[in-house]
Design a protein around this nucleic acid. Structure first.
Lengths: 224, 224
DNA sequence: TCGATTTTGAGAACACGTTCACAAACTCTT
DNA sequence: AAGAGTTTGTGAACGTGTTCTCAAAATCGA
C-alpha cells in the first residue's frame, strides 16, 4: 500500500497553498488586470512575471498550487486565470471591514481608494473618543466601542483593522474577538494576543523605515 | 589550508546580518524599552522573547549575529543590549524623510506619532497638486515637486516615502532617485523600478487585507 | 505527418530561516 | 571548593521558499 500524498487531483482545488504564494496571488491579480487593460488576452509566464515583478519559475510554481490553468506552448488565458485566482482568494465577493480608531491613520484608511477595487469595503468605523462618536468620516458615521458587537453582527463583518495608539491595541483586539471578528490587521505598534482561531497580520510603519535606515547606515559606512 | 568563513571575530561587528534578523531588531528594541519602563535591568532570552513575541532560540540566534552581548547563567543587561542594537540599526541618530503625496495617507503619515520616538523625522512634504503646495500640514510647508532636489539636498534627506496613487509611483520614484534618495518606502499599489543602489520596501494595504480575506474564506469553507 | 519551436509543470538542487539540543560559562549555596 | 542550577551561544536538524532544469505537451510551417 502506498501512502497517499495530498496532491490535488487537478479538478478539486485542494487546500494547503503556501503562505508565500498566498501573499503573491493579489499581486498576480493586479498584473492580470493591467494586462487586460492593455488588451492582452493571452500571456506567457514570462510576460506575467515581468508585469508582477517576480521570477517566471516562481510564478509557475505558485500557479501550479492552484491547478493547471496554462497551456504548454501557448501560455495562460488572462481572463480565465484572473477568474481562477479571484475565486481562490475570495476576490469575487466583497469583504466588509470595521476600522477601530479614526485618528489620522484610521481616517486615511477609511478614505483609501485602493480598497474598493480589490473587494474591500469599509463598512463601519468605531472609536472610543466621545468627541468623534456620531461624526461622519468618508460618509460613514462613527460608532461607539460599546456598539462594536452590534455593528459587527448587523453587517456580518469578519475583518477588523486596529488603527489606535499602541496602548489601546490589546484592549481593542479583545473587544474585536469578543464581537466575533476572526481576522485582524493591526497598525498599532504593539503585539496583540488572540485565540488560535483568529488571524492577525501586523503592519508597522516605523519598523519599515527603521529597516531602510539600517541599510542607509550600511551604505554610508562603506568606506571600510 | 582551511577556507576562512566570514565569521565575525566577536569584537568586530562584522557585516552580513540576515534580512529576517534585521527586520526583528526594531521589535527587540521596542521590547527592551518596555522592559526598561518596567524597571527591569537584566533579562533572560526567555523574558525578552516573550516581550517581543518570538521564540527564545530565534532571539538568541538573532543577537548572536551582532556579537556576544549576554552573560551565561545571567542573561542580558537591558540598557547595554538596547544600546548595541540601536547602534547596529542606526537608531542613535535621527533620520530625515521626505513624503511625496500629501493626500489622506501622506497627511496621516506626516502626523504619525510613532515615528519620532524611533528616530524618524518627517523633514519635508512634497506634492504635485498646486492647491496643496504652500499649505502647511503638521507644521510643515508643502513644497512643489520641482523643488524636491533642492529640499533633499538642503536637509540631507536619504529616505523617501511614496504616498501617491499607483499611476504616479514610477514617476515619483524616478524623481526621488534623481534627487539623491537611496531608500524608498512605497505605499502606492504599483511596482517601481529603481537602480541597484537604491533600496525599496513596499507596504500594500489592500494586499494585507486580501490575504486576511483568503484565510477568512478558508475558515468559512471548513464544512467539508 | 514530421520536425522545429514554444512554453508549461514539476522534480531536484539550492538557499534561507527556524528550532532543537547541548556544551560551555556563569552564579549561588553549602 | 565543589556541586547544583541557570542561561547563553552555536552546531546540527529540520522546514520553507526559490531557482534551475528539462521532459511533456502544445503550436506552427513545410
Amino acid at each position: 500500500m502506498t501512502i497517499l500524498r495530498n496532491r490535488p487531483s487537478a479538478g478539486s482545488p485542494e487546500r494547503g497553498i503556501p503562505d508565500a504564494t498566498v501573499a503573491r496571488l493579489p499581486v498576480y491579480l493586479r498584473a492580470l488586470n493591467a494586462l487586460t487593460e492593455q488588451g492582452i488576452g493571452t500571456c506567457s509566464s514570462n510576460d506575467l512575471a515581468a508585469q508582477a515583478g517576480v521570477n517566471p519559475a516562481k510564478l509557475r510554481k505558485d500557479l501550479s498550487h492552484l491547478g493547471s490553468y496554462g497551456t504548454r506552448g501557448v501560455g495562460y488565458d488572462v481572463e480565465y486565470l484572473r477568474y481562477q485566482i479571484a475565486l481562490e482568494i475570495g476576490q469575487n465577493q466583497d469583504w466588509d471591514v470595521v476600522i477601530v480608531g479614526v485618528g489620522n491613520l484610521g481616517s486615511a484608511l477609511s478614505a483609501y481608494q485602493g480598497f474598493s477595487t480589490r473587494g474591500i469595503r469599509v463598512a463601519a468605523l468605531v472609536d472610543s473618543n466621545p468627541e468623534r462618536i456620531g461624526t461622519t468620516i468618508s460618509g460613514i458615521e462613527v460608532s461607539a466601542m460599546a456598539d462594536l458587537k452590534k455593528v459587527v453582527a448587523e453587517r456580518e463583518i469578519s475583518i477588523g483593522i486596529i488603527a489606535t495608539p499602541g496602548e489601546a491595541a490589546q484592549e481593542v483586539a479583545d473587544r474585536l474577538v469578543e464581537a466575533g471578528i476572526t481576522s485582524i490587521l493591526n497598525f498599532a505598534p504593539a503585539l496583540v494576543q488572540v485565540p488560535d482561531n483568529v488571524d492577525v497580520r501586523k503592519v508597522d510603519l516605523s519598523i519599515e523605515l527603521q529597516i531602510l535606515a539600517y541599510h542607509e547606515q550600511r551604505k554610508a559606512g562603506e568606506a571600510s
